[in-house]
Structures are given as structure tokens and as C-alpha cells.
Nucleic acid binder design. Structure first.
Length: 294
DNA sequence: CTAGGATCCTGTCAGC
DNA sequence: TGCTGACAGGATCCTA
């Protein structure tokens, strides 16, 4: 679930709440959610909060880094000791009622006891994980090493080269590949394709240079819009009046808007299936025509 | 090497 | 109510 903007929102949130906090104890409730010896983490202060693509990197003072990948349903929730105020807590990641629940709940996988509160790693489907590794070895981690650049760092030329390794795959499948471009997931892939007016089933090899440029621009633009809207957090999950919010509505033009009119042309947004994933398009703005590549 | 489908896991929802 | 199958904001593994 959580894609680059959600992970960046968490990175910023945690940095403001627990920078330099000492981890006094780690409680692992689900073995597969925490990889490595927790003893290397206990007693250490968290010095830096970094992000690479959808991976969150927490650097400790002893040269150890915890790499967090939330995959589909991961969340990180911080609660300050003895406080009931929402200003003393932070929740980010896959938005569910766990943001509000008494914790730990049945989806809590790891608990970090800090000097100033507790940090919970929740993950309904257990696909996510926290991995202990040496800070110097982060760049050699198989996943990190294979990551392509994020759209802000990537030239059109490099994007095109990466795309064209997958000429016959549908463009949506190609941009979901983190080795092609880092950060997009199911939401922002749909949003970026809508931005560029490209049908997700188009063969990657059929895209023109102009479409490739627009797609890269769209990837940056839609993820920036999400980060700027505050991302998926407790604050966007619950509105001031106590009702449930839906942060997707703050920036998403097509994702989970099937049945609604396209804001550009008024045609009805539909949901289809591409590369095994639910996919949202405006059938009028995103036509399936194979253009010849120049 | 790529393409496409199955797979990891738990919960929810639509349709009998 | 209870069952069943489909599906879910990710990435990897397997097969062709």
C-alpha cells in the first residue's frame, strides 16, 4: 500500500516526534515482521530518518540501520507516554482504524519502547518487515541496490531506456516496477497515467517521446500533490468533527473514483483490470490506441 | 533477459 | 446467519 508519498509523510512525522529518542526495548510479536537481532537496536538513539523509494531507513547511533518496508498494509504509529491528545501522537501508512485503536491491537507486529513513548509497527497482512543491517551495508541490500531513481532525479533519457526494457508489457506494469522508476504504486501509477492521458494497457514500446516526457512529469506531479496534501496520516483519516476523512479525495483524480465524472471531460471513470491490479481510468481521456513509435 | 501468473497473509465485502 | 470467492495502495518467485 503505502507508496512513496505515504512513506515520505511517515519519515517527516517520525523525524518530528522521535528524532534522537532512545529505543529502550523492542518487543517482537510476529517473527517474520522483524529480521535480525533486536539486541543491536535496543539502547540506541535514532539519529536520522531517510527514505529510498518506498523503503524507510532509520539510522541508529551505533552504525546500525533499521530498514522498514510497509508493503501493502504496514503502518507506523507513535503514541507519547501518558498523553491523550492527538497532538502527542502520529500515525501513518495504510489508513485503518488501527490509527485510532488502543494499541497494541491484533495487527501489531513489533513494539518499540522509547524514552518518550511507544512506536508500533502494525501490519494486517504481514507482508511488510523491519530489517536490521549495518548502515554501511544499506547500499548493498538487494532491494535497495536494484531500485531505480525517483522521478525527480531521473532524466527523460534514462526513463525511456528503463521503460524500453519492457517493450511488450502494459505500461502500467512497467511503471510499477521499482527497477524502472522508484516510488509509484497502484494509486500513483493510475494517477500518473491519467495525467499523461495514457491508457494503462498500452504496450510500453508504443509510447512516443512526448508521452514518456508527460508520464515522467505526471509521476512527479501526482506524488508531490499527495505529499503536499499531508499524506495518509491520523489527521487526514479523522476529520476535526470526528467523521472519517478520505485523503485520496484531496488529490486523486481517478483512483477509487469509478462511477464519478472525470474532472477534465465529464465522462464516467471506470475500473478495469490491468497487470492483475485494479485500475482506474477515464475511458475518454485515456484511449487505447497503439501509436507508432518514431 | 522479459512476461505473466501464483504466492505470501489477514480481513472485508458482495452475493448467494 | 453462514458460506464462498474476489479483492486489497507490494514485491518476489516460478515457469514459459
Amino acid at each position: 500500500m503505502p507508496e512513496l508519498p505515504e512513506v515520505e509523510t511517515i519519515r517527516r512525522g517520525l523525524e518530528s516526534f522521535i528524532k534522537n529518542a532512545k529505543i529502550t526495548k523492542v518487543e517482537v510479536l510476529c517473527g517474520k515482521s522483524f529480521i535480525g537481532p533486536k539486541e543491536l537496536v535496543e539502547g540506541q538513539k535514532i539519529k536520522a530518518f531517510r527514505r529510498k523509494g518506498k523503503a524507510l531507513l532509520l539510522d541508529l547511533e551505533n552504525g546500525i540501520t533499521m530498514m522498514v518496508h510497509l508493503r501493502m498494509t504496514g503502518q507506523l504509529i507513535f503514541r507519547k507516554t501518558g498523553s491523550k491528545s492527538t497532538n502527542d501522537s502520529f500515525a501513518g501508512g495504510h489508513p485503518t482504524d488501527s490509527f485510532l485503536n488502543e494499541l497494541p491491537d491484533n495487527q501489531t507486529r513489533v513494539i518499540f519502547e522509547l524514552e518518550n513513548g511507544k512506536l508500533y509497527f502494525n501490519d494486517q497482512r504481514k507482508f511488510g518487515f523491519i530489517k536490521v543491517l549495518e548502515t554501511l551495508e544499506v547500499e548493498n541490500d538487494k532491494f535497495i541496490k536494484s531500485l531505480a531513481k525517483e522521478p525527480w532525479e531521473m532524466s527523460e533519457k534514462e526513463f525511456e531506456e528503463n521503460l524500453m526494457r519492457h517493450k511488450s508489457a502494459p505500461i502500467k506494469a512497467t511503471i510499477l516496477d521499482q527497477k524502472v522508476i522508484a516510488g509509484l504504486g497502484n494509486i500513483y501509477a493510475d494517477e500518473a497515467l491519467f495525467y499523461a492521458k495514457i491508457h494503462p494497457k498500452r504496450k510500453t514500446g508504443s509510447l512516443t517521446k512526448a508521452e514518456i516526457r508527460k508520464l515522467l512529469e505526471g509521476a512527479k506531479s501526482v506524488m508531490e500533490a499527495s505529499i503536499n496534501s499531508g499524506g495518509s496520516t491520523m489527521k487526514t483519516y479523522v476529520k476535526a468533527d470526528g467523521t472519517k476523512g478520505d485523503y485520496l479525495r484531496l488529490f486523486a483524480k481517478v483512483f477509487r473514483r469509478e462511477g464519478e465524472p472525470c474532472e477534465k471531460c465529464g465522462a464516467e471513470i471506470i475500473k478495469i483490470r490491468v497487470a492483475g491490479r485494479g485500475t482506474h481510468i477515464c475511458p475518454n481521456c485515456q484511449k487505447l490506441v497503439e501509436k507508432e513509435r518514431k
